[in-house]
Amino acid sequence: MNRMMIIPVTVATVAALCVAALGATVTDLGPWYQALAKPAWNPPDVVFPMGWTVIYALITVAGITAWRAAPNTAAAEWVIGLFALNGFLNISWSILFFRFQRPDWAFYEVVLLWLSILAMILYCGRFSKKAAVLLVPYLAWVTFAAALNRAVVELNAPFG
């Protein structure tokens, strides 16, 4: 690996690992979650960590790719900012859903998460089609998660 790649790869990898670890730390599949009514199409719990592992790997590669392809420092800083905002929203959803036990609030927040992914795709796609394509599975995953979140709200409301 050349020296030009070390910083982006290191920063993106550490950031993705931190977001994944924080998200996992606040995710509690204990009695409250198990007691929630879920739709028939809810996948087994084991699917989620496997899916998130793939998604985080794709996000990391997309971030590195976009950062390296950015035409100037300002564009690279926007890439970092968009990915950082997205990481914050990703963790926030887990906190709202699992820690606060408010799937209703989490549903509204997942809309912001979804929009942040779309913003990353559109912005990065201006100078890196590869980065944009790598983020499409993340958008699809969060679209599915949002639909699942909405179904949980409908089956279990009211909350709080």
Rank of each mutant, 00 (worst) to 15 (best):
A35H: 01
N72I: 10
N149Q: 15
L135C: 07
T10I: 13
V9H: 10
T10S: 11
N156M: 15
N156E: 14
Y33N: 03
R126E: 00
M5R: 15
R99K: 15
W141Y: 15
R150S: 14
L82N: 07
K129G: 09
V47C: 00
G23Q: 07
V54Q: 00
A15E: 09
A62L: 02
M4W: 10
A157K: 14
V11E: 12
N72T: 09
A74F: 12
T73Q: 10
L135T: 06
L36H: 03
Q34G: 00
N2A: 09
P44Q: 03
T53K: 02
S116C: 11
W141H: 11
A119Q: 12
R150C: 11
V26S: 01
P43M: 02
A75M: 12
V47I: 03
G160H: 15
W78L: 09
L96S: 06
P43T: 00
S116K: 03
P49K: 04
L85T: 13
L134G: 05
W78Q: 14
T60C: 05
A57M: 06
P43S: 02
F88Y: 15
M4R: 14
V47G: 00
M4N: 13
A157F: 04
W105E: 13
W67G: 09
T73A: 14
F97A: 11
G63F: 06
A20I: 04
R126A: 09
C124D: 12
S92P: 06
N42D: 00
K129V: 08
L36M: 06
